[in-house]
Amino acid sequence: MKTSELNSQNNYMLRKLIVVALIMFAFGYALVPLYKKICEVTGVYDLIKPDEIVNTQVDESRTVVMEFDANTRSDIGWQLAPVDIRMDVHPGELVHATFRLTNPTTSSFDAQAIPSYGPQHAAQYVKKLECFCFTQQTINAGETREFSVVFVIDPSLPSDVGTVTLSYTMFEIEGTKTLGNQAVTDEFYEAKS
């Protein structure tokens, strides 16, 4: 084989392999939406979309214990807590649950709640019709507000699941906080860094 012929073959191979590497780099990023899609399809991770109810036949013969729970980061000074801690519900029945947010601070901010479920696979059977997690919420200084979530437990919930926990973690949206009292500490760490 001639040298020039070999060189052009080699360069062709080089270009091909660079494209493969670039595609794999893009694939790394593609895993982000892919992961979300997979989570949505399997119902593990349907955050901010109302569900459609397929089956509304109430199954009176079965009772599922619903637990409610909320988490807020310890360093933000306001709290979200469930008003009802525990409810006995029948699959197919329309359930209203309330969460209360107390903001004793002098700041207002926007917040987003992220739902999560225990056991995880219960997620696809908790069909939320209304939820404060569907949108960002604006919380005013000193405000106490009640949020509601309306959902139905899909009667196809596997029969071995006896307790379902619906837990919200509420986050402040970065950069939406106003009137903070962090001035002193900020100045301190600015001086340090």
Binding site: L22, M24, F25, A26, F27, G28, Y29, L31
Partner: peptide
């Protein structure tokens, strides 16, 4: 390597 290193590059870039 060609198939997996770029994925790591993506992860650390994120």
């Amino acid at each position: 390597l060609v198939a997996s290193m770029p994925v790591l590059a993506g992860a650390v870039t994120m």
